[in-house]
Design a protein around this nucleic acid. Structure first.
Lengths: 250, 250
DNA sequence: TCGTCCCATTGACGTATATCAACGCCAATT
DNA sequence: AATTGGCGTTGATATACGTCAATGGGACGA
């Protein structure tokens, strides 16, 4: 068992102190590409760079846990993260997967409402909350940008409620694959084959299914020729139109 | 599917003209109490009043439909609204119930992502989007307030994902009743008995259940002495602690 | 090279909830 | 008073998905 795993188990068992992920100041060069910074002028970027730090996480590393004081917000710059909520008996709901450009850690009270953990090796840009607030005061356009991102997330959350509450397993998986493909495309990555960085268990916890049902549904879609499972967790979408029809309940 | 449902779907099928709800300018007196206006000075309120109109809806009246151009945002001032999304075959997911103080109509592209309809007789304050944007430019603290409200909604949406994806029918209903009670309390209304303005079908579509299962679950909770069903859709919470335990999966 | 562990897959079986159907209540209408 | 329609409740049955269990493969360390 690796040192990493020991650390993780301790975190789960007792309220362990936060892991100490590697950190270094964010370079202005990278800051420029952060989604929240899009509206800023070149001359304003260094003020953002002054308050940020880079964080690096390996697969399975926690970033923060539900209930912790929300001292930071983060922008994903590389890798894949997942955010989730737990019930006391261990049932888990993954509320989202996060990719480069995505934002996390906004909390309306001062406590994180969910836990965040790396799915694959990831890097993030950390904004101390207090300092960020000063920045937002200074740059209302940055605040406007944040509002836009929050609205976007809210719409995604409502869409996911429809998935969780009213779609069948097959429809859920088809919806998931297409959404993942679209998001990959948005980031300029290949939309087909889609890379599934996360495990079947994670997908199940995202879609309100068990790993077994997810697996069976993949098998079923493969049997119908709609997808093909490749090496390295890649999924080829062989018939997007049919998947689209299924995802809409057609 | 009942005749009622068919009729409703027909309304959606053809791009029906918007209902023409009764409208009148919002008085500054009421504006003052709008949640978005909380941060504003007395002297600033009349500028808000200048752009708003009051809208009145009866039970079942639509406010807007998913896919329509999002020309307005609204603040509920009285009554109960519901917002929902539909699948092509009529399956419905209610993504939220809205009470006085709640905001709706924020859309990050220019299209409503969901439909909104009155549950009970309701009044709302309408903000034309373009004019509101000017106002937000002028009052950054109003924008900050909006961001706070959006964050709050986002947290609620994530909580609801946990409910939809991972809770049993009994846990769902217990969670729902407690949440409704808390929200009534926040608005200064009696937390017990809770008034259920919405039908069993609406509750089912909110919790990812059928009306029958909702009904049976109420019956079951009543049988255990945890709730009592009163006249007028009121529910007495006779054992909040037990309900709380159930809602958390204990 | 061989275990070990984790993960994905597959099978057999169980069950929570959906579906289909009937009934009663209440309010509105005639 | 009789009729109608919407809504909530209850019962019988069906089924999609969960649960439990076994197997196999790839990554990793001894």
């Amino acid at each position: 068992m690796s040192a990493f795993d020991v650390q993780k188990m301790a975190t789960l068992g007792e309220a362990a102190p936060n892991p100490r992920p590697s950190q270094s100041p964010c370079s202005a060069c990278k800051i420029r590409h952060l989604t929240v910074c899009a509206p800023l002028e070149e001359s304003e970027l260094h003020q953002v760079a002054a308050i940020t730090h880079s964080v690096e996480l390996g697969p399975g590393d926690p970033l923060f846990d539900e209930g912790e004081p929300a001292n930071n917000v983060y922008n994903v710059t590389a890798g894949t993260m997942k955010v989730y909520k737990l019930l006391s008996d261990g049932r888990r709901q993954v509320t989202g997967f996060l990719f480069p450009g995505d934002f996390l850690g906004l909390a309306n009270n001062d406590i994180y409402a969910y836990s965040a953990e790396a799915v694959s090796h990831s890097t993030l840009c950390r904004f101390p909350r207090r300092k960020l607030e000063g920045l937002l005061e200074q740059f209302p356009k940055m605040e406007k940008r944040l509002l836009g991102m929050a609205s976007h997330e809210l719409a995604a959350a409502q869409e996911q409620m429809l998935v969780l509450g009213r779609k069948t397993a097959k429809e859920k998986v088809a919806t998931f694959l297409l959404a993942l493909s679209r998001r990959a495309e948005e980031r300029g990555q290949p939309a087909d084959p889609v890379t599934l960085a996360m495990s079947r268990a994670d997908i199940g916890d995202y879609l309100g299914l068990t790993t077994e049902t997810v697996s069976r549904t993949f098998t079923q879609l493969r049997g119908s020729g709609l997808i093909a499972l490749q090496q390295g967790g890649k999924v080829e979408l062989r018939d997007r139109e049919a998947l689209q029809d299924i995802s809409e309940g057609g």
